[in-house]
């Protein structure tokens, strides 16, 4: 399967039967070892296209393992899109791309009904959001109503058009990028929308050695085409289910919840982490545990993923930065003892 840049030119109708409710309900949990192998393969694939950003690679892997939507915030040209493409390619699933721009309409994202004169019937044409992986480039350039259309997709995993509800494929992962530096002509994401992204991170500029390697390797050929598919939709779904079965002890859950509650108590944080953030933090920590070949979460897993999972949800008074606050909080909240 290939990455489609413009869904409008694609004549093929989306096959909704493939994601029937039976498939959704089927218990497809794998063994933890298979899930771990899947995670290591993913990391291998990602490290072929992106050099020197281990944290971003880990966050992207956790996002795939747990199905948490991913928001990449960074300057242009550091490899946000490449990473998103690599995710789609590795999973061997259908992916589509939305290029954020101010005149993008909600129907451009979700799809629309068209009148067929031959059959005298309205036919639904699914939009790019019906792909399993949706890459929203420059999300903060889309107008708020289009952002709002994405909200329902992200939380409910369904789209309602003309009174009909269409289920989105499962698993369904939205990877959005935004460029925090240029604020001209942007519509900043509202808090409710950033809260729906389970994970967020920046990639950062590579070290000089990595950049040289990058310049050589990416000069002529698309590295993404070289990476191998490591699974399909069914395998991915069962990996997500397996990650949900990673054991979280009460002490660790308490630790994660205490971190989230602590953000609400700080005077310089005007909006703290929601209970949804705590759920998402624990869920993401399960992904970290899986990467480390464990079937249980330790406090360190929570610490590792806390910045990516919580920081982007906070509304912080300047001059504080959410990332700094999270690392301060990790020092302040008492850890479980053993």
């Amino acid at each position: 399967m290939t990455l489609k840049d413009n869904p409008d030119t694609d004549e093929q109708e989306f096959n909704l039967e493939k994601i029937s409710p039976e498939l959704l309900l089927k218990d497809t949990a794998l063994g933890f070892d298979s899930a771990f192998k899947f995670a290591v393969d993913l990391l291998d694939n990602f490290s072929q296209v992106l050099y020197g950003s281990p944290y971003a690679l880990m966050v992207a892997t956790v996002s795939v393992l747990t199905g948490e939507h991913l928001l990449l915030e960074d300057a242009p040209g550091v490899g946000k899109t490449i990473l998103a493409k690599a995710i789609a390619k590795s999973l061997g699933v259908q992916a589509s791309r939305i290029q954020g721009q101010p005149d993008l309409l909600p129907s451009d994202v979700t799809g629309f009904s068209i009148f067929n004169p031959e059959t005298t019937q309205w036919t639904f044409r699914p939009g790019p959001v019906f792909s399993q992986i949706v890459l929203c480039d420059e999300l903060n350039r889309t107008p708020p109503r289009t952002q709002a259309a994405l909200l329902e997709c992200m939380e409910e995993a369904q789209v309602t058009i003309d009174g009909t509800t269409h289920l989105l494929p499962n698993p369904h992962l939205i990877i959005a990028t935004q460029n925090p530096l240029s604020q001209q002509g942007t519509f900043p994401l509202v808090e409710s929308q950033t809260d729906r992204f389970g994970l967020s991170c920046s990639i950062g500029y590579p070290q000089i050695e990595d950049e040289i390697k990058l310049a050589i390797n990416h000069g002529t050929a698309d590295q993404v085409l070289k990476i191998k598919e490591i699974g399909d939709q069914e395998l991915w779904l069962s990996v997500i289910r397996t990650s949900g079965l990673v054991h979280v002890s009460e002490a660790v859950a308490r630790y994660a919840v205490e971190i989230c509650r602590y953000t609400r108590e700080q005077p310089f944080i005007s909006l703290g982490a929601s209970p949804r953030a705590a759920i998402s933090l624990i869920n993401s920590a399960r992904g970290v545990a899986l990467i480390n070949r464990r079937d249980y979460v330790i406090p360190n897993d929570v610490q590792v993923i806390a910045t990516a999972s919580v920081a982007h949800r906070l509304a912080v008074d300047p001059p504080h930065r959410p990332q700094e606050i999270i690392s301060n909080i990790l020092r302040s909240v008492a850890q479980p003892r053993p």
Binding site: F36, Y55, E250, V288, R293, R294, D301, Q323, E324, S327
Partner: peptide
């Protein structure tokens, strides 16, 4: 932003005996 211990480098325990799942967590008072 400092990156804590990069996690996936840790050593691998054996997981042959993955136990039956969905065990209720004990309440801690």
């Amino acid at each position: 932003m400092s990156i804590p211990n990069f996690p996936y480098q840790s050593s691998y325990n054996s997981y042959e005996n993955a136990k039956p799942l969905l065990e209720d967590a004990k309440e801690e008072k």
